[in-house]
């Protein structure tokens, strides 16, 4: 249980570096139903004047919120979650040097996200805490992938 009275605005509650590979994009396409070829076809991505195959914005948004879920220890507490998508995340092709039967355990990341979750605002009356997520790409001069990524948590 999180004690709301012990929280401080600006306090870091979680950090994580998340690896993304082409296999993750294909898996997300299947799970979400978003089969836009810019997320799996290099030729299509280049024809669309993109730097290459890029991650679904919704994949980055979905990956980042796990820090909030882990912190609250109940996903049902997340009553609102929003973001702007401010930088694309190109996902490079990498060799599967690990067991090809376990493509999601590939130790060679095609892209990475650095995620920091901080307490953005505390409302003791409604017991709603806003968690601000900073999501940057260490392979792209720490470009901000998500901007104003905020989760409202009902404690």
């Amino acid at each position: 249980m999180i004690a709301i009275e012990n929280l401080t605005k600006g306090e870091v509650v979680a950090t994580r570096t998340i690896n993304i590979n082409r296999a993750d994009l294909i898996r997300y396409a299947g799970a979400s139903g978003d089969f836009n070829p810019i997320h799996w076809s290099e030729a299509t991505a280049q024809a669309a004047e993109l730097p290459g195959v890029i991650a679904h914005g919704m994949l980055s948004m979905g990956l980042a919120v796990d820090l909030v879920t882990e912190w609250t220890n109940d996903p049902a507490t997340i009553i609102d979650y929003q973001t702007r998508f401010s930088a694309m995340v190109p996902v490079e092709e990498t060799t599967h040097t690990a067991n090809p039967a376990r493509p999601f355990d590939n130790p060679n990341p095609g892209a990475q996200l650095d995620v920091v979750a901080k307490v953005g605002a505390i409302n003791e009356e409604t017991r709603v805490v806003r968690v601000d997520l900073t999501v940057t790409n260490p392979h792209d001069d720490n470009a901000r992938v998500l901007t104003r990524a905020q989760a409202q948590v009902q404690l």
Binding site: D24, R27, A31, L59, D66, T69, N73, D74, P75
Partner: peptide, 14 residues
């Protein structure tokens, strides 16, 4: 479960 796995949301409630 499939969606949670795809976004690496590992919490048991998923």
């Amino acid at each position: 479960r499939r969606f949670a796995t795809a976004v690496k949301n590992t919490h048991p409630f998923h």
